[in-house]
Amino acid sequence: MSSEGLPSLRWGIIATGQISSWFASDLTLLRPNAKAKHTITAIGSSSREKGEAFVARWIPDVSPPPKVYSSYDQVFNHPDVDIIYVGTPNSFHKQNCLDAIAAGKHVLCEKAFTLNVREAEEVFNAAREKGVFIMEAMWTRFFPLVRKLHRLVHKDRVIGDVHRVFADLGLDQDISSLGPDSRLKNPALGAGTLLDICIYSITWGLLTMDSRTGESAEQPVIKAVQTLSHSIDVASTVLLLYPSTQKQAICTSTAMFRTPDVFCRIEGTNGHIEVQGVSASCPTAFTIFIKGRSSEGERHTVPKPGHGLYWEADAVAQDIAAGRKENAIMPWSETLRVLGILDEARRQGGARFPGDD
Protein backbone atom coordinates (compact mmCIF):
# COMPACT_ATOMS: atom_id res chain seq x y z
CA MET A 1 0.00 0.00 0.00
CA SER A 2 1.13 3.55 -0.69
CA SER A 3 1.61 6.21 1.97
CA GLU A 4 -1.78 7.65 0.97
CA GLY A 5 -3.48 4.37 1.85
CA LEU A 6 -4.02 3.53 -1.82
CA PRO A 7 -2.88 0.29 -3.46
CA SER A 8 0.36 0.80 -5.35
CA LEU A 9 1.94 -0.91 -8.34
CA ARG A 10 5.38 -0.74 -9.91
CA TRP A 11 5.05 -1.11 -13.67
CA GLY A 12 7.33 -2.47 -16.34
CA ILE A 13 6.23 -1.44 -19.84
CA ILE A 14 7.34 -3.42 -22.87
CA ALA A 15 7.17 -1.90 -26.37
CA THR A 16 7.18 1.84 -27.02
CA GLY A 17 4.47 2.33 -29.63
CA GLN A 18 1.44 4.60 -29.50
CA ILE A 19 -0.67 2.67 -27.03
CA SER A 20 2.28 2.31 -24.63
CA SER A 21 2.89 6.06 -24.85
CA TRP A 22 -0.73 6.77 -23.94
CA PHE A 23 -0.61 4.28 -21.08
CA ALA A 24 2.65 5.63 -19.65
CA SER A 25 1.55 9.26 -19.79
CA ASP A 26 -1.81 8.37 -18.19
CA LEU A 27 -0.13 6.53 -15.31
CA THR A 28 1.80 9.68 -14.43
CA LEU A 29 -1.16 12.09 -14.48
CA LEU A 30 -1.98 13.82 -11.21
CA ARG A 31 -5.59 12.86 -10.51
CA PRO A 32 -7.43 13.95 -7.38
CA ASN A 33 -9.76 10.94 -7.57
CA ALA A 34 -7.11 8.31 -8.33
CA LYS A 35 -7.86 4.89 -6.82
CA ALA A 36 -4.25 3.69 -6.88
CA LYS A 37 -0.66 4.88 -6.99
CA HIS A 38 1.37 3.90 -10.04
CA THR A 39 5.14 3.98 -10.55
CA ILE A 40 6.85 3.22 -13.85
CA THR A 41 10.02 1.37 -12.91
CA ALA A 42 11.27 -0.07 -16.20
CA ILE A 43 10.82 0.33 -19.95
CA GLY A 44 11.68 -2.37 -22.48
CA SER A 45 12.20 -1.43 -26.13
CA SER A 46 13.81 -2.79 -29.28
CA SER A 47 16.78 -0.50 -28.59
CA ARG A 48 18.04 1.53 -25.65
CA GLU A 49 17.98 4.68 -27.79
CA LYS A 50 14.33 4.18 -28.69
CA GLY A 51 13.44 3.53 -25.06
CA GLU A 52 15.23 6.66 -23.86
CA ALA A 53 13.48 8.73 -26.52
CA PHE A 54 10.15 7.31 -25.31
CA VAL A 55 10.88 8.40 -21.73
CA ALA A 56 12.05 11.86 -22.82
CA ARG A 57 8.92 12.47 -24.88
CA TRP A 58 6.12 10.89 -22.88
CA ILE A 59 7.18 10.79 -19.21
CA PRO A 60 9.99 13.38 -18.91
CA ASP A 61 9.03 14.46 -15.38
CA VAL A 62 9.04 11.03 -13.76
CA SER A 63 11.52 11.02 -10.86
CA PRO A 64 13.43 8.86 -10.54
CA PRO A 65 13.20 8.00 -14.25
CA PRO A 66 12.49 4.38 -15.16
CA LYS A 67 15.33 2.09 -16.13
CA VAL A 68 15.48 1.59 -19.90
CA TYR A 69 16.40 -1.78 -21.39
CA SER A 70 16.87 -3.11 -24.90
CA SER A 71 15.67 -6.52 -23.72
CA TYR A 72 12.18 -7.44 -22.54
CA ASP A 73 13.67 -10.20 -20.37
CA GLN A 74 15.45 -7.57 -18.27
CA VAL A 75 12.08 -5.94 -17.57
CA PHE A 76 10.41 -9.29 -16.79
CA ASN A 77 13.13 -10.13 -14.28
CA HIS A 78 13.53 -6.69 -12.73
CA PRO A 79 13.18 -7.04 -8.93
CA ASP A 80 11.37 -3.69 -8.60
CA VAL A 81 8.64 -4.50 -11.15
CA ASP A 82 5.33 -5.89 -9.90
CA ILE A 83 3.39 -5.99 -13.15
CA ILE A 84 4.12 -5.99 -16.88
CA TYR A 85 2.14 -3.92 -19.36
CA VAL A 86 2.32 -5.64 -22.76
CA GLY A 87 1.96 -3.16 -25.63
CA THR A 88 3.51 -5.25 -28.42
CA PRO A 89 1.76 -6.28 -31.68
CA ASN A 90 -0.94 -8.97 -31.34
CA SER A 91 1.16 -11.92 -32.47
CA PHE A 92 3.71 -11.39 -29.67
CA HIS A 93 1.18 -11.23 -26.82
CA LYS A 94 1.14 -14.93 -26.07
CA GLN A 95 4.90 -15.30 -25.65
CA ASN A 96 5.31 -11.96 -23.87
CA CYS A 97 2.63 -12.97 -21.36
CA LEU A 98 4.14 -16.42 -20.83
CA ASP A 99 7.59 -14.93 -20.26
CA ALA A 100 6.26 -12.39 -17.77
CA ILE A 101 4.27 -15.06 -15.93
CA ALA A 102 7.29 -17.35 -15.78
CA ALA A 103 9.16 -14.49 -14.06
CA GLY A 104 6.36 -14.29 -11.48
CA LYS A 105 4.97 -10.96 -12.68
CA HIS A 106 1.36 -9.88 -12.92
CA VAL A 107 0.27 -8.91 -16.44
CA LEU A 108 -1.94 -6.37 -18.17
CA CYS A 109 -1.93 -7.26 -21.87
CA GLU A 110 -3.30 -5.12 -24.66
CA LYS A 111 -6.19 -6.26 -26.82
CA ALA A 112 -6.55 -8.43 -28.72
CA PHE A 113 -5.26 -10.56 -25.85
CA THR A 114 -3.90 -13.22 -28.22
CA LEU A 115 -4.48 -14.23 -31.83
CA ASN A 116 -7.07 -16.85 -30.91
CA VAL A 117 -8.79 -18.74 -28.11
CA ARG A 118 -6.24 -21.54 -28.10
CA GLU A 119 -3.39 -19.16 -27.30
CA ALA A 120 -5.41 -17.36 -24.61
CA GLU A 121 -6.21 -20.62 -22.85
CA GLU A 122 -2.51 -21.46 -22.73
CA VAL A 123 -1.72 -18.07 -21.16
CA PHE A 124 -4.53 -18.29 -18.59
CA ASN A 125 -3.48 -21.80 -17.62
CA ALA A 126 0.07 -20.56 -17.05
CA ALA A 127 -1.18 -17.64 -14.92
CA ARG A 128 -3.37 -19.99 -12.88
CA GLU A 129 -0.47 -22.34 -12.19
CA LYS A 130 1.85 -19.46 -11.23
CA GLY A 131 -0.77 -17.70 -9.13
CA VAL A 132 -0.44 -14.27 -10.77
CA PHE A 133 -3.02 -11.72 -11.86
CA ILE A 134 -3.61 -11.24 -15.58
CA MET A 135 -6.14 -9.22 -17.59
CA GLU A 136 -6.80 -8.13 -21.14
CA ALA A 137 -6.45 -4.36 -21.38
CA MET A 138 -9.88 -3.59 -22.81
CA TRP A 139 -9.74 -0.06 -21.40
CA THR A 140 -13.10 1.05 -22.81
CA ARG A 141 -15.02 -1.20 -20.42
CA PHE A 142 -13.57 0.67 -17.42
CA PHE A 143 -14.64 4.17 -18.40
CA PRO A 144 -17.06 5.57 -15.78
CA LEU A 145 -19.13 6.80 -18.73
CA VAL A 146 -19.44 3.23 -20.04
CA ARG A 147 -20.28 1.86 -16.59
CA LYS A 148 -22.98 4.55 -16.25
CA LEU A 149 -24.42 3.71 -19.66
CA HIS A 150 -24.40 0.00 -18.81
CA ARG A 151 -26.38 0.68 -15.62
CA LEU A 152 -28.91 2.94 -17.33
CA VAL A 153 -29.52 0.42 -20.13
CA HIS A 154 -29.73 -2.77 -18.09
CA LYS A 155 -30.69 -1.82 -14.53
CA ASP A 156 -32.73 1.35 -15.07
CA ARG A 157 -33.97 0.25 -18.53
CA VAL A 158 -34.19 3.87 -19.68
CA ILE A 159 -35.04 2.86 -23.26
CA GLY A 160 -37.00 -0.28 -22.40
CA ASP A 161 -36.03 -3.54 -24.07
CA VAL A 162 -32.99 -3.19 -26.31
CA HIS A 163 -33.67 -4.89 -29.64
CA ARG A 164 -30.96 -3.65 -31.99
CA VAL A 165 -27.51 -2.04 -31.79
CA PHE A 166 -25.25 -0.56 -34.45
CA ALA A 167 -21.57 -0.06 -33.56
CA ASP A 168 -18.80 0.98 -35.93
CA LEU A 169 -15.12 1.83 -35.78
CA GLY A 170 -13.59 3.01 -39.02
CA LEU A 171 -10.17 4.55 -39.62
CA ASP A 172 -8.67 5.89 -42.84
CA GLN A 173 -5.42 3.92 -42.64
CA ASP A 174 -4.40 3.78 -46.34
CA ILE A 175 -3.30 0.16 -45.94
CA SER A 176 -2.08 -0.10 -49.55
CA SER A 177 0.64 2.48 -48.92
CA LEU A 178 2.14 0.61 -45.97
CA GLY A 179 5.14 -1.67 -46.18
CA PRO A 180 4.71 -5.46 -45.90
CA ASP A 181 6.13 -5.49 -42.36
CA SER A 182 3.62 -2.99 -40.94
CA ARG A 183 1.60 -4.32 -38.00
CA LEU A 184 -1.49 -3.18 -39.94
CA LYS A 185 -0.58 -5.22 -43.04
CA ASN A 186 1.47 -8.25 -41.99
CA PRO A 187 -0.72 -11.31 -41.19
CA ALA A 188 2.11 -12.71 -39.06
CA LEU A 189 1.57 -9.73 -36.70
CA GLY A 190 -2.18 -10.30 -36.43
CA ALA A 191 -3.01 -7.53 -38.89
CA GLY A 192 -6.49 -6.58 -40.07
CA THR A 193 -9.36 -4.52 -38.72
CA LEU A 194 -11.04 -7.39 -36.87
CA LEU A 195 -8.54 -7.74 -34.02
CA ASP A 196 -7.34 -4.15 -34.18
CA ILE A 197 -10.60 -2.19 -34.13
CA CYS A 198 -13.67 -4.36 -34.75
CA ILE A 199 -13.06 -5.83 -31.30
CA TYR A 200 -14.31 -2.48 -29.94
CA SER A 201 -17.46 -2.56 -32.06
CA ILE A 202 -18.13 -6.10 -30.89
CA THR A 203 -17.52 -5.01 -27.30
CA TRP A 204 -20.25 -2.35 -27.65
CA GLY A 205 -22.61 -4.98 -29.03
CA LEU A 206 -21.93 -7.32 -26.11
CA LEU A 207 -22.14 -4.60 -23.45
CA THR A 208 -25.44 -3.21 -24.66
CA MET A 209 -27.19 -6.46 -25.52
CA ASP A 210 -26.57 -8.31 -22.27
CA SER A 211 -25.88 -7.16 -18.70
CA ARG A 212 -23.79 -10.27 -18.06
CA THR A 213 -20.23 -11.15 -19.07
CA GLY A 214 -18.23 -14.30 -19.65
CA GLU A 215 -19.73 -17.69 -18.88
CA SER A 216 -22.99 -16.28 -17.51
CA ALA A 217 -23.78 -14.27 -20.66
CA GLU A 218 -25.89 -15.56 -23.51
CA GLN A 219 -23.78 -16.77 -26.41
CA PRO A 220 -24.96 -15.09 -29.62
CA VAL A 221 -25.05 -16.72 -33.03
CA ILE A 222 -22.31 -15.23 -35.22
CA LYS A 223 -22.69 -14.20 -38.85
CA ALA A 224 -19.70 -12.50 -40.45
CA VAL A 225 -18.37 -11.23 -43.77
CA GLN A 226 -15.02 -9.60 -44.52
CA THR A 227 -13.41 -7.64 -47.33
CA LEU A 228 -9.91 -9.04 -47.78
CA SER A 229 -6.68 -7.64 -49.17
CA HIS A 230 -3.59 -9.86 -49.18
CA SER A 231 -5.31 -12.26 -46.74
CA ILE A 232 -6.08 -9.59 -44.11
CA ASP A 233 -9.43 -7.91 -43.63
CA VAL A 234 -9.72 -4.22 -44.50
CA ALA A 235 -13.39 -4.29 -43.51
CA SER A 236 -15.41 -6.63 -41.31
CA THR A 237 -19.08 -6.94 -40.44
CA VAL A 238 -20.05 -9.16 -37.54
CA LEU A 239 -23.70 -9.78 -36.68
CA LEU A 240 -24.48 -10.96 -33.15
CA LEU A 241 -27.90 -12.62 -33.09
CA TYR A 242 -29.33 -13.53 -29.68
CA PRO A 243 -31.44 -16.71 -29.98
CA SER A 244 -33.62 -16.14 -26.91
CA THR A 245 -34.88 -12.71 -28.03
CA GLN A 246 -33.89 -12.44 -31.71
CA LYS A 247 -32.25 -9.07 -30.98
CA GLN A 248 -29.29 -8.06 -33.10
CA ALA A 249 -26.01 -6.20 -32.79
CA ILE A 250 -24.41 -5.12 -36.07
CA CYS A 251 -20.70 -4.57 -35.42
CA THR A 252 -18.50 -3.18 -38.17
CA SER A 253 -14.99 -1.94 -38.91
CA THR A 254 -13.10 -0.54 -41.87
CA ALA A 255 -9.62 0.71 -42.67
CA MET A 256 -10.94 2.89 -45.51
CA PHE A 257 -13.12 5.53 -43.80
CA ARG A 258 -13.09 7.33 -40.45
CA THR A 259 -16.28 6.87 -38.46
CA PRO A 260 -18.10 10.12 -37.55
CA ASP A 261 -18.33 11.15 -33.89
CA VAL A 262 -21.52 9.18 -33.27
CA PHE A 263 -20.28 5.61 -33.54
CA CYS A 264 -23.01 3.62 -31.78
CA ARG A 265 -26.81 3.62 -31.71
CA ILE A 266 -28.71 1.52 -29.19
CA GLU A 267 -32.38 1.02 -30.09
CA GLY A 268 -35.02 0.08 -27.54
CA THR A 269 -38.78 -0.15 -27.22
CA ASN A 270 -39.02 3.27 -25.51
CA GLY A 271 -36.30 5.21 -27.34
CA HIS A 272 -32.69 5.09 -28.39
CA ILE A 273 -29.21 6.14 -27.25
CA GLU A 274 -26.42 7.63 -29.36
CA VAL A 275 -22.82 7.23 -28.17
CA GLN A 276 -20.10 9.50 -29.46
CA GLY A 277 -16.37 10.06 -29.17
CA VAL A 278 -13.16 10.17 -31.13
CA SER A 279 -13.65 6.43 -31.72
CA ALA A 280 -15.51 3.45 -30.31
CA SER A 281 -12.51 2.80 -28.07
CA CYS A 282 -12.72 6.21 -26.39
CA PRO A 283 -16.30 7.44 -25.81
CA THR A 284 -16.85 10.95 -24.50
CA ALA A 285 -20.65 11.28 -24.24
CA PHE A 286 -23.98 9.60 -24.85
CA THR A 287 -27.42 11.07 -25.43
CA ILE A 288 -30.71 9.41 -24.47
CA PHE A 289 -33.71 10.03 -26.71
CA ILE A 290 -37.08 8.95 -25.28
CA LYS A 291 -40.05 8.57 -27.59
CA GLY A 292 -42.40 11.54 -27.36
CA ARG A 293 -39.93 13.78 -25.50
CA SER A 294 -37.57 16.57 -26.54
CA SER A 295 -35.75 15.95 -29.79
CA GLU A 296 -32.55 17.26 -28.17
CA GLY A 297 -32.34 14.30 -25.80
CA GLU A 298 -30.55 14.01 -22.46
CA ARG A 299 -26.78 14.24 -22.79
CA HIS A 300 -24.41 12.52 -20.32
CA THR A 301 -20.67 13.12 -19.94
CA VAL A 302 -17.97 12.22 -17.42
CA PRO A 303 -14.71 14.22 -17.05
CA LYS A 304 -11.77 12.42 -18.65
CA PRO A 305 -8.29 13.91 -18.25
CA GLY A 306 -5.67 12.33 -20.47
CA HIS A 307 -6.65 9.30 -22.54
CA GLY A 308 -8.55 7.29 -19.92
CA LEU A 309 -6.25 4.27 -19.58
CA TYR A 310 -5.71 4.89 -15.86
CA TRP A 311 -9.16 3.54 -14.95
CA GLU A 312 -8.19 0.01 -15.97
CA ALA A 313 -4.82 0.43 -14.23
CA ASP A 314 -6.54 1.50 -11.00
CA ALA A 315 -8.86 -1.52 -11.21
CA VAL A 316 -5.89 -3.85 -11.67
CA ALA A 317 -4.11 -2.35 -8.65
CA GLN A 318 -7.19 -2.80 -6.48
CA ASP A 319 -7.61 -6.42 -7.59
CA ILE A 320 -3.99 -7.29 -6.88
CA ALA A 321 -4.10 -5.58 -3.49
CA ALA A 322 -7.17 -7.67 -2.64
CA GLY A 323 -5.49 -10.90 -3.74
CA ARG A 324 -7.70 -11.43 -6.78
CA LYS A 325 -6.24 -13.07 -9.90
CA GLU A 326 -8.76 -11.69 -12.39
CA ASN A 327 -11.08 -8.72 -12.75
CA ALA A 328 -14.88 -8.83 -12.55
CA ILE A 329 -15.41 -6.32 -15.38
CA MET A 330 -13.00 -8.12 -17.75
CA PRO A 331 -12.74 -11.71 -16.44
CA TRP A 332 -10.81 -14.40 -18.27
CA SER A 333 -14.04 -15.97 -19.47
CA GLU A 334 -15.02 -12.73 -21.22
CA THR A 335 -11.68 -12.55 -23.02
CA LEU A 336 -12.23 -16.13 -24.20
CA ARG A 337 -15.80 -15.34 -25.28
CA VAL A 338 -14.70 -12.35 -27.37
CA LEU A 339 -11.80 -14.26 -28.91
CA GLY A 340 -14.22 -17.04 -29.77
CA ILE A 341 -16.35 -14.52 -31.67
CA LEU A 342 -13.26 -13.18 -33.45
CA ASP A 343 -12.14 -16.72 -34.35
CA GLU A 344 -15.55 -17.52 -35.80
CA ALA A 345 -15.70 -14.22 -37.69
CA ARG A 346 -12.36 -14.98 -39.33
CA ARG A 347 -13.46 -18.53 -40.12
CA GLN A 348 -16.55 -17.24 -41.90
CA GLY A 349 -14.94 -14.13 -43.39
CA GLY A 350 -11.77 -15.72 -44.70
CA ALA A 351 -8.97 -13.74 -43.00
CA ARG A 352 -6.11 -16.01 -41.97
CA PHE A 353 -3.02 -15.83 -39.79
CA PRO A 354 0.01 -18.11 -40.09
CA GLY A 355 -0.63 -21.25 -38.07
CA ASP A 356 -4.41 -21.13 -38.46
CA ASP A 357 -5.98 -24.54 -38.91
Rank of each mutant, 00 (worst) to 15 (best):
R265S: 00
T254F: 05
T252F: 06
R265E: 02
G271P: 00
R293W: 09
V278G: 12
S253G: 01
C282H: 05
P303M: 11
D314R: 03
S294P: 11
F263G: 05
T301F: 13
R265N: 07
A255G: 06
L309T: 08
P305L: 13
D261Y: 01
F263H: 04
S281H: 04
V262D: 07
H307K: 15
S281P: 04
E298S: 09
Y310I: 14
K304R: 14
R299N: 15
P260T: 09
G306R: 09
P283K: 03
H307N: 15
G268H: 09
F257N: 10
G297A: 01
T259F: 10
G308C: 13
A280G: 05
T269L: 01
P283G: 02
S281N: 12
E267I: 03
C264Y: 06
Y310R: 05
F257E: 07
S279W: 06
C264R: 03
F286L: 00
P283D: 09
W311R: 11
H272M: 06
T259V: 04
T252G: 02
R258S: 02
P303G: 10
D261R: 09
D261F: 01
Y310N: 12
T269H: 01
F289D: 06
E296P: 10
G271K: 02
T252D: 04
S253I: 01
T284D: 10
E267W: 01
T269I: 10
R293M: 13
T284M: 07
R299I: 15
I266K: 09
K304N: 13
I273Y: 06
A280Y: 06
A315N: 09
F286I: 01
C282F: 06
V278S: 14
C282A: 09
S279T: 00
S281G: 12
P260M: 04
D261A: 08
